[in-house]
C-alpha cells in the first residue's frame, strides 16, 4: 500500500515523487541546450527573487528599502514513470547566485558541471561548490569547436580543474540527445558508485 492508508480519503490522488539533477556551468556553456536536448517539455524558465541580503550586499542605510532583482532559472522535465519525475535545473554559475544553489542542491541526486573549453575557468566555482558539499558530480566538456573536439583529453581537463581522478570527465555535444543522455547516465553511475563506498 504505497499511496493510501486507512486515514486518507479514498480518492487520494497519486502524486509522483520528484528528483532533480543540476546542470551547472558558466554563462553560455550550453546548460539550456543540454536540458532542452533531453527534456520532454521545452525548457521552462522561472524567476527567483533576490534581495540585497541574498546577494551578500550590506544595506548601507537601514531606512533605504531593500532593492530586489530577479534571476532566471531554466529547467526541463523527464517523466520516468507515473510515480517518479526527474527535473533538470540549469543553474547560473556565478558565485553571487550561491544562495540559490543551496536550495537547488538540497535533495538533488547530483550535478553535471558543463565545461566550455574556451573558458574553463568559468566552472571553477561550480566544481568547488559540489566538492565542498559532497554532492556527486561529473564534468561534461561541451565541444563547441567541432574541429578541435579531439584536441582536449579528459586528463588535461581534470588537471586544469583540479578534480580528483574519481570524478568522471566526458566529452559531449549538448545539442545531441544521445550525447546528453550519456552524460546523465554517467552521472547516475557515479552516484551509485559513491553510494557503494558509503554503505
Amino acid at each position: 500500500m504505497a499511496f493510501a492508508d486507512s486515514d486518507g480519503p479514498p480518492d487520494e490522488p497519486l502524486i509522483p515523487q520528484a528528483v532533480k539533477i543540476l546542470i551547472a556551468g558558466g554563462f553560455g556553456a550550453g546548460k539550456t541546450t543540454l536540458v532542452g536536448s533531453v527534456s520532454e517539455i521545452t525548457p521552462l524558465s522561472t524567476e527567483e527573487i533576490m534581495t540585497e541580503a541574498s546577494l551578500g550586499l550590506d544595506a548601507l542605510d537601514g531606512v533605504e528599502a531593500k532593492r530586489t532583482t530577479t534571476v532566471a532559472l531554466d529547467f526541463g522535465r523527464i517523466t520516468i514513470n507515473p510515480e517518479l519525475v526527474l527535473y533538470l535545473f540549469g543553474t547560473p554559475g556565478q558565485q553571487r547566485f550561491w544562495f540559490m544553489w543551496d536550495e537547488l542542491a538540497t535533495g538533488s541526486l547530483g550535478a553535471v558541471v558543463l565545461a566550455d573549453t574556451r573558458r574553463l575557468d568559468t566552472c571553477f566555482s561550480a566544481v568547488d561548490f559540489f566538492e565542498r558539499r559532497g554532492i556527486p558530480f561529473v564534468v561534461a566538456v561541451n565541444c563547441f569547436d567541432d574541429d578541435k573536439a579531439d584536441s582536449y583529453d579528459p586528463e588535461e581537463v581534470a588537471r586544469a580543474l583540479g578534480t580528483s581522478p574519481s570524478v568522471p570527465i566526458i566529452m559531449c555535444d549538448a545539442r545531441r540527445r544521445q550525447s546528453s543522455k550519456q552524460v546523465l547516465i554517467m552521472l547516475i553511475r557515479q552516484v551509485e558508485a559513491l553510494l557503494s563506498i558509503v554503505s
Binding site: 515523487q17 528528483v19 533531453v38 523527464i78 517523466t79 520516468i80 514513470n81 517518479l84 526527474l86 541526486l109 540527445r177 543522455k181 546523465l184 547516465i185 547516475i188 553511475r189 552516484v191 551509485e192 553510494l195
Partner: peptide, 13 residues
C-alpha cells in the same frame, strides 16, 4: 531503486 528507475528512464529517451 530510485537510481535504477532514473537510469532506466534516461536510457529509454
Amino acid at each position: 531503486d530510485i537510481l535504477q528507475a532514473v537510469l532506466d528512464g534516461i536510457r529509454r529517451l
